[in-house]
Computed example of a mutant assay.
Amino acid sequence: MKENGRDIVLLAHGDGGALTHELINNLFLRHFESNILKTLTDAAVFSVNEGRMAITTDSFVVDPPFFPGGDVGKLAVCGTVNDLAVSGARPVYLTASFILEEGLPLADLESIVQSMAGACGVAGVEIVTGDTKVVEKGHLDKIFINTTGVGYIFPGVDLGYHRIKPGDKVLVNGSLGQHGIAVLCKRYGFDFAGQVMSDCAPLNGITSLLLKEIRGIKIMRDLTRGGLATTAKEIASACGLDIWLDENCIPVDAGVKGAAEMLGLDPLYLANEGKFMVIVSPEEAEKAVAVMQGHELGRDASIIGEVKPGKGNVYLSTSLGGTKLLDLMAGSPLPRIC
């Protein structure tokens, strides 16, 4: 069936019949190249290695589904890969389940699936099983994607709040707030000079390099919803120590800074999809920065703060010479950014 001259998703694409099989064989299998997936059995069967494994799951409902620098498909792959990567794992397999709104153009769905396949190629992971459901028009906003990721924890890696000590340094791999601003601008039609692009990217390449070269990594976290400030507060609360951040050292590019100032937003609370925070022993902090800067996703890496004795608070030394208490984000200044 066509709508405005375009082939669209029909309810029958989700009923398990001929159109479902056509969608699977002619669209999903054409882009997701996996011998495990091609068996089309009720469960993916694969071999496992000795050691510890990590598993994570997430759902992606970003509005709009296409934005500068990415789309909901790329976001789904990168978001799941990154959750595994910052947990000290090598991502290997993903699942992908789609909930589609009746009337979604099939060309849009194919573009999203192509984007997912491209992100899988960059990250070196396979989509090995999945599911598709279609709901009536008006009961969903275009497309929702759920992914589950499986990976192997690198031997000898032990990351966790229990390892953090006073004196440890806080690092980030680059400029903050790009994803949040990119989605906002696309959603509301803001046209800032030098349009900000989402930083959406798989982080497993840079995190695996860091884990190989630096033994003193205490914890890593990707800076998604709530941004740097919320993530830092979560870590400080969990370990019962204070984190002091230096505003002058936190990288925020001019486009994000200008847009955030105009819209009354704080870049430290904006979402990122290709940035992560690392807490590392002080004697290896400079080496860690150098390792990160040697990777394309860490060229603007820097030391932005330090862990100190305290009671689980986060403080920002401002560029004006003052001190600001940072807490968890209250509410959501930009809903549906992932």
Rank of each mutant, 00 (worst) to 15 (best):
K2D: 12
E3C: 08
N4S: 12
G5R: 09
H13N: 10
H13T: 02
H13P: 00
G17I: 13
G17W: 15
A18I: 09
A18V: 12
A18E: 15
E22W: 15
N26Q: 15
N26P: 01
F28N: 04
H31K: 14
H31T: 11
H31C: 09
H31I: 11
N35T: 13
L40G: 12
A43L: 14
V48F: 14
N49Y: 12
R52Y: 05
M53H: 14
M53Y: 15
I55E: 04
I55M: 06
T56L: 09
T56S: 11
F60A: 08
P64I: 11
P64G: 04
P65V: 14
P68M: 12
G70M: 08
G70F: 03
V72N: 02
C78P: 14
S87C: 00
A89F: 00
Y93V: 00
Y93W: 08
L94R: 03
L94P: 09
T95Q: 09
T95A: 07
T95H: 08
A96M: 10
A96P: 00
E101C: 13
A107F: 11
D108S: 14
S111V: 11
S111C: 13
S115R: 10
G121M: 03
V125R: 07
I127R: 05
G130S: 13
T132I: 15
K133A: 15
V134I: 12
E136F: 13
K137N: 13
K142M: 13
I143M: 15
F144E: 14
G149E: 00
Y152I: 13
F154L: 11
P155N: 13
P166M: 04
D168S: 05
K169I: 08
V170I: 09
N173M: 07
G180C: 05
V183F: 03
V183H: 02
R187H: 07
G189F: 02
D191I: 07
F192M: 02
F192E: 05
V196R: 00
V196L: 01
M197I: 03
L209I: 02
L210Y: 08
L210M: 02
K212P: 15
E213N: 09
E213F: 03
G216V: 00
L223F: 07
G227N: 06
A232D: 04
A236V: 03
S237D: 13
G240K: 07
L241A: 07
W244P: 01
A254V: 07
G258T: 04
A259C: 05
A259F: 00
A260C: 06
L263E: 05
G264C: 01
L265D: 06
P267S: 02
L268I: 08
L270Y: 10
G274A: 07
F276Q: 02
M277L: 14
P282L: 10
K287I: 01
V289H: 01
V289I: 05
A290N: 07
V291A: 09
V291H: 09
V291L: 12
G294R: 03
G294E: 06
G294F: 06
H295S: 10
R299P: 10
R299M: 14
E306N: 05
V307G: 01
K308E: 10
L316E: 01
T318Y: 07
T323H: 06
K324E: 06
A330M: 09
P333F: 04
P335L: 11
